[in-house]
Design a protein around this nucleic acid. Structure first.
Lengths: 344, 344
DNA sequence: ATTTAGCACTCGCTTTATTAGAGTGCTAAC
DNA sequence: GTTAGCACTCTAATAAAGCGAGTGCTAAAT
């Protein structure tokens, strides 16, 4: 559909605009060494590209700027192969050299490094704890009225919640209850816990425990948080430095979205299959993100998706570099996690 | 030193400027009902006030704006008494009506409500966990190589850390160690733990435990985090809405400070004694905070300071209102915490 | 049939003028 | 001591002018 020459011009326009942030004119293009024909020819080609919707003018006599369709085509067909620098690779590898054994910290660190390297914002969706299996429940009385209930999963995830104890419950009862819970529930995925408690544990507790009712409510509060997977944002302030957000109103609009977080939650959850995915401008279908692109990748354990890691930047984003970086982080993260969890 | 009339004029200038953000001229002042004399008189008085350093002009023929010294005087001597609305009081009380039993969550909620009510940024310095007393240590093996070490304090604070186990350590040894640690260390303030382990526990462990060395290192890693008290920021983005930061460069400068966090840490720690404290502009002695004021208050348990809660806003801040709100939050917080912790 | 040179034209941006408005300081009268 | 009056200053807003980058079109060259 597009001639080679048109592709060349489109590619150079996008590359140049990503680099400079300025609309690209025919004269600028004609000076590029890849280009052997005159500015007049370029003007003709650009007029065609514009008619086809790949580029547009910011005003009637300005240079051209990629349209959303232009970026899309660029990302799909024209992406220059990108060699990460040794330095970038090392920085990323440094995440995994430190002895971090906690998923949460590892994820946060990854997000932070990625936002530092790209100068954009990184969003990470942590794994949903729902599928993690219960390792142990502990109830540690703090004083006569309160105790802290702690739930540990096989992945080392710890959830804690301070609860009130029923008045004048014997300590032995608390211990009994904890024993019963651990006996029956170890290895059960968190999402099945409440069910399982109702069907299999409740009647046993009723027999052995005073204030069985209160105790049961007490233990289910921390559970039915039904925790929506945690989300981490890193480098929000990098957006301040993007020239497209020099306008304070655009900035406010953007941060309204960023602070919401729930939109990101939706967007990151949408990414199911493997691989890197690029959503440009309105493709994200979020008000206030018209000028942003979101590049997402999943990380997984042995092929099973755990969560999503994404970079948010202006549509005028260094797609090539960000995709490479994100890809590296996601695969490295997956490899490390697979090593952690696969062995049992 | 200042005449009553000068005080009146100064107060009205500050009030009006806080309200409108615009320099205040003699004509505007003369229209206020409290003022019974002419604009010419006001001009004379203003010239004097300027000479004394309480107000300044933004340019040679502009109205006047409070200087830092002016704000200082206003806060020290002219603060109008402020009646919180019933609504504000209720919103704040709502923090404590919900059944939150966790210090951390309570603090975060307070910060969030405070930033919502003021439209400024709230910073809270959590209590240093160093003084909390150990309730229990648990080591929960996850698989052959890793375990999660959990430390619970008498305040319900939970610290967790995933550690590696020495190769082929018997489970019984882990249990033994945990028992020994709990026997000897329960009730010990966290800050003394490492010492106490070295002096009193190490030799006992050495007798009973294989790989005593590795195990000891393992348990001390999560401890010597030496956690600098946690800090929470809420409502950073409120600063976007302050007209003084409409200029993108000032905004960037401000966020450079805010993101640093360590400066706040220093500032909030400085506040030792009881009561509300106001630091205006350069009084904070932080580059980038020249146009900001920080209002701090401490919260405490039975008179003993736990942490600091502060509101950050532009120097042109609603001092009266913020002080009242902050005061209410801090005392309510202190009361609730005193009820929690005082009873044992 | 392409490609290119040339040219008139458009539009945004920056600079310069112009003006209106708010506010001041000073003087002289009250 | 207070005030009215006035000349003066400076900002902010608006308008006018010029520059430069870029375009589209036409006609000539390949």
């Amino acid at each position: 559909m597009l001639t080679d020459r048109q592709l060349l011009i489109l590619k150079i326009i996008v590359d140049d605009f990503i680099r400079s942030g300025q609309p690209v004119g025919s004269r600028t293009l004609s000076k590029k060494e890849q280009i052997t024909f005159s500015s007049a020819t370029i003007r003709n080609e650009m007029a065609d590209l514009e008619e086809l919707g790949f580029i547009e003018k910011t005003h009637i006599s300005s240079g051209r700027v990629p349209s959303q369709k232009g970026y899309r085509y660029y990302v799909d067909h024209l992406l220059p192969p990108f060699r990460l620098t040794q330095k970038d690779v090392q920085t990323i590898r440094s995440i995994f050299n430190e002895q971090i054994y906690e998923l949460e910290k590892l994820i946060q660190k990854s997000a932070q490094i990625l936002s530092d390297l790209t100068n954009y914002t990184t969003v990470v969706l942590g794994p949903s704890v729902k599928e993690h299996k219960l390792k142990t429940i502990q109830i540690i009385p703090l004083n006569a009225e309160t105790a802290v209930a702690i739930i540990v999963t096989d992945t080392g995830y710890v959830e804690k919640h301070v609860v009130t104890l029923p008045p004048s419950i014997p300590t032995s009862d608390v211990e009994k209850m904890v024993n019963i819970l651990n006996d029956r529930l170890t290895g059960v995925p968190l999402e099945d816990l409440t069910d399982k408690i109702q069907t299999e544990v409740a009647h046993v507790l009723r027999e052995h425990i005073q204030s069985y009712d209160h105790m049961l409510r007490m233990i289910s509060t921390p559970l039915d948080l039904n925790a929506p997977a945690q989300m981490f944002l890193s480098g929000k302030m990098n957006m301040l430095r993007q020239p497209e957000f020099n306008d304070i109103d655009k900035l406010r609009a953007l941060f309204n979205v960023i602070e919401q977080e729930k939109e990101f939650y939706r967007l990151l959850r949408k990414h199911k299959q493997q691989g890197v995915q690029v959503k440009i401008g309105t493709e994200n279908d979020v008000e206030g993100m018209e000028n942003c692109s979101l590049i997402t990748a999943t990380y997984s354990v042995g092929g099973e998706k755990l969560g999503t890691i994404a970079v948010l930047g202006p549509t005028r984003m260094e797609y090539s570099r960000v995709i490479s970086l994100l890809n590296l982080v996601a695969t490295d993260l997956s490899n490390v996690l697979t090593m952690w969890y696969q062995k049992d």
